[in-house]
Amino acid sequence: MSDVLFLQWVKGPLFSIAVMIFVIGVVLRLAEILSLGRAKNLAVPKGNPSLGGWREIGRRFKVDQGTFQQNKITVIAGYVFHVGLFIVMFLLAAHIALIKHSLGVSWPNLPTPVVDMAAVLSMLALVVLLIDRLSQPVKRFLSRRNDYLVWVATFLPLLTGYMTYHHLWLSPQWLLGLHILSVEALLVLFPFSKLMHTFTLFLSRWYNGASMGLRGVKS
């Protein structure tokens, strides 16, 4: 297959299929979760549950000193990775154009070298996190195939995107095609892996926070 046919294929039908699997999968998974319901709490509340829910959604972005001291790599590399990924995903002009095209909304972009830097930092952080995952007993013990698979699936789009921008190794068509393909793999894997935490973490924080709010626990 020629690079152009490949690009046309991944940019065309394959991308539509991947996006649809992603959307269907995410909606399905959320339905799966929410359908299990939550019993109404009959205890007299001491505080406002939903206020607590919202508060926890915000507060859990912060880490307390003691926990930070014990999880420096996880926290710092985790933050660098997530912020970097966010910048790359949502502030690169090419990506904004894509979002505008498929969802009709857009916003200003960042200079490309800034995004490039974010991608590099993000990849470095991912490598650090992988090494940490392999070397820290607890993380290593907790990790399943899913965790490593998701690592690869997240790393590849960053790497191929970086290579596309810098015209490394292959023709730009191949690279752009591979980049899009890797994103498609990520999209398909998303609903059925721990990548779902992107959405469910807000649910989790809310549920936990609502229970804290009900009990009047302010953290």
């Binding site: 799966e32 929410l34 607890v138 993380k139 973490l201």
Partner: peptide, 22 residues
């Protein structure tokens, strides 16, 4: 016993290991 919060919790865990340090 399993309800929506629990399903959400399991779906969210990223195996970061921070709960161990807690």
């Amino acid at each position: 016993q399993i309800d929506a919060p629990i399903a959400s919790f399991f779906s969210s865990c990223v195996s970061c290991g921070m709960c161990a340090s807690a």
